[in-house]
Design a protein around this nucleic acid. Structure first.
Lengths: 144, 144
DNA sequence: TTTATACAATTGACCAATCAATCGTTGATA
DNA sequence: TATCAACGATTGATTGGTCAATTGTATAAA
């Protein structure tokens, strides 16, 4: 298991993640981005798009398009901030809230299967390792 | 840290992965898929596209298009298997091999930064956990 | 008060991934 | 030998993401 770059952690992670997302998408029938977006909205009352964008790390353009679509589907409402017309404020509709609740239940089931055989401690450890790596990444220079 | 589905491991993983890939892409200047493709080719002499596709879990169409582009860039050559005209065999050119070697070096540097502060044991543990989750995923039913 | 700067959101152009349908080849079967 | 099913590869249509440029609004400076 030398670090020659072959079958490295990054490779494993990539293979794993791709399968994970693909499976999750097929199970829930929703795209990962849209799910993340809705989930983020679920936790707040109302939020503007740029804040959403920063939290999700998705491009601004993608945010705009997703939200327009979600608005068309009756999942969210959008209105311009009366105190500052540059901001548009987004919130889930009641219908949207119901939807995301259902998805979240599916997610919990999915997670249970994913983490089968993992003790509480192991789960915490894993989460912690990811956080540490994330910290490391933040210190890597690069136009991000 | 209850398992209500909020800020779950899947969320953390997703946030982490997106940042990881974005940073890696910016550092190396190559797309993750293309890199994986080239890396896979690096390990074999010659290979057909379907085998590649299965190993990488990328869509067949994407494979075809990537390889056509790589062929245009002089990174790979493609020829039809004389024993069975349905297969096209792909291999890296010498130039392609040089390229991938350079990228792999960048990857090793990147990995070193990513894993800063991780002991050998921790790295193994992490890799092992991913493998276990991957196993779990394979048992989840779903059209994949 | 006018002008310049900063910022949120949007749009257009482009690239990459997926799905579904199709083409061409092969091998088995009637 | 003719037909059909299986399979690899390709293509078209659609979707989602990024970058760059633009629009509209607010605020600070001249």
């Amino acid at each position: 298991m030398k670090d020659s770059g072959d079958n490295s952690i990054i490779d494993k992670l990539q293979n794993f993640y791709i399968q994970l997302i693909s499976k999750f998408g097929h199970c829930t029938g929703i795209s990962p981005s849209r799910f993340r977006l809705m989930q983020q909205l679920f936790h707040v009352d109302e939020i503007n798009q740029t804040t959403l964008q920063k939290e999700l790390q998705i491009d601004r353009a993608a945010i705009t398009r997703h939200l327009k679509q979600l608005e068309g589907d009756g999942i969210v409402t959008r209105r311009i901030n009366p105190d500052d017309n540059r901001f548009t404020l987004v919130r889930l509709t009641d219908h949207g809230r119901q939807e995301i609740v259902a998805y979240r239940e599916e997610k919990i089931l999915f997670m249970a299967q994913l983490l089968q055989g993992f003790s509480e401690e192991e789960q915490k450890l894993f989460a912690n390792m990811i956080e540490r790596m994330q910290e490391n990444i933040n210190h890597i220079k690069g136009e991000n």
